[in-house]
């Protein structure tokens, strides 16, 4: 018992050491301090809790879901909340709403993960190249970024989906196409401040080419501000995906996408309110979770911009 305690103590000391002995120790230490800071913020922890729950629900969907989300049972349609075997009732085709919610979490996570990978990476690429090369490349790339930035996001996504055809993958592409410009801007701004640093000149003198400098010495430094932005953007991505689903341009039936579920339930809103309301609560909860976490992360990773605490 006591040995575990001292182990624990020394690990803590190792992490909080003022004079880290290795790069690894410094990195873990910074991470641990960020964790301690976030842990003291209750709202951030609530956000993290919501998202971890979402993750588990999505992973374990087949085990948790009480029913098959696709099986229709017309004799059992539009059952109210709390009815036998159906905690959240059933929809207009007699499908269990809870099970559909549980499986829908997979779609939500799928969309968010893909967009959160595609958009920042595209933005990072464009921004660092523009910032590092400068000159005409910078002007042209940033002009294109501005054009996309100027475009109303949802309308642009609508037009893209119209051109590409409705479906989850196309919704992901459309949302990514509208989401990358802010990342490009951030990455460019970071690159401009880093570009003139002494250590970059030092690597250059050692013979490093532009590709090596960008990928090995500039990208790592842009990551933290991009992560903050991603965390803050996640909620917007979820809402955009749900909006597209609601318009019938995202996931197609019978897929249990939350936005599409609201759209289905809309027809019976006045008499069977829960069919549309419950998936909306799910969307709200998850996007609130991302916002709470993003807000907390910003306080930790990007203190100059936070204005909080």
């Amino acid at each position: 018992m006591s040995t575990v305690d001292t182990d624990h103590q020394s690990l803590r000391q190792w992490l909080l050491s003022e004079t880290p002995m290795s790069r690894r120790q410094a990195r873990f230490g910074a991470f641990y301090q960020g964790w301690l800071k976030s842990k003291s913020n209750r709202l951030t922890m609530i956000g993290l809790g919501i998202l971890l729950t979402l993750l588990f629900v999505a992973l374990l969907a087949p085990l948790i879901a009480p029913h098959d989300p696709f099986v229709q049972n017309l004799a059992n349609r539009l059952q109210p909340i709390g009815s036998d075997q159906h905690l959240f009732g059933t929809d207009s085709l007699g499908r269990d709403i809870l099970s559909r919610l549980i499986y829908g979490s997979r779609i939500t996570l799928y969309i968010v993960t893909l967009v959160a990978l595609i958009a920042p990476i595209a933005g990072l690429f464009v921004g660092t190249v523009a910032g590092y090369i400068g000159g005409w490349a910078d002007v042209i790339l940033m002009r294109i970024t501005d054009i996309f930035l100027a475009f109303p996001r949802l309308v642009l996504a609508l037009a893209f989906v119209a051109a590409l055809g409705a479906g989850i993958e196309n919704a992901v592409i459309a949302i990514s196409l509208t989401a990358w410009p802010p990342y490009a801007r951030i990455a460019r701004a970071e690159t401009l401040t880093i570009r003139g640093a002494d250590y970059i000149s030092a690597v250059k003198l050692q013979g490093a080419g532009p590709i090596r400098i960008i990928t090995k010495h500039i990208w790592p430094l842009c990551i933290s501000s991009l992560i903050v932005r991603v965390a803050l953007d996640m909620a917007g991505i979820i809402l955009a995906a749900a909006g597209l689903g609601f318009l019938g341009l995202g996931a197609q039936p019978p897929s249990p996408e939350w936005g599409a579920m609201i759209s289905e339930g809309r027809k019976f809103l006045l008499d069977f309110w829960w069919v549309a309301t419950i998936p909306g609560l799910a969307i709200f909860t998850v996007s609130l979770g991302f916002n709470l976490l993003g807000d907390g992360l910003r306080d930790v990773l990007d203190p100059k911009d936070s204005g909080d605490e």
Binding site: A235, L239, G243, F246, R266, F284
Partner: peptide
């Protein structure tokens, strides 16, 4: 406010 799906809030 940031987290609310506005179409859902409208329905409610």
């Amino acid at each position: 406010g940031y987290s609310m799906p506005i179409f859902w809030l409208g329905l409610v």
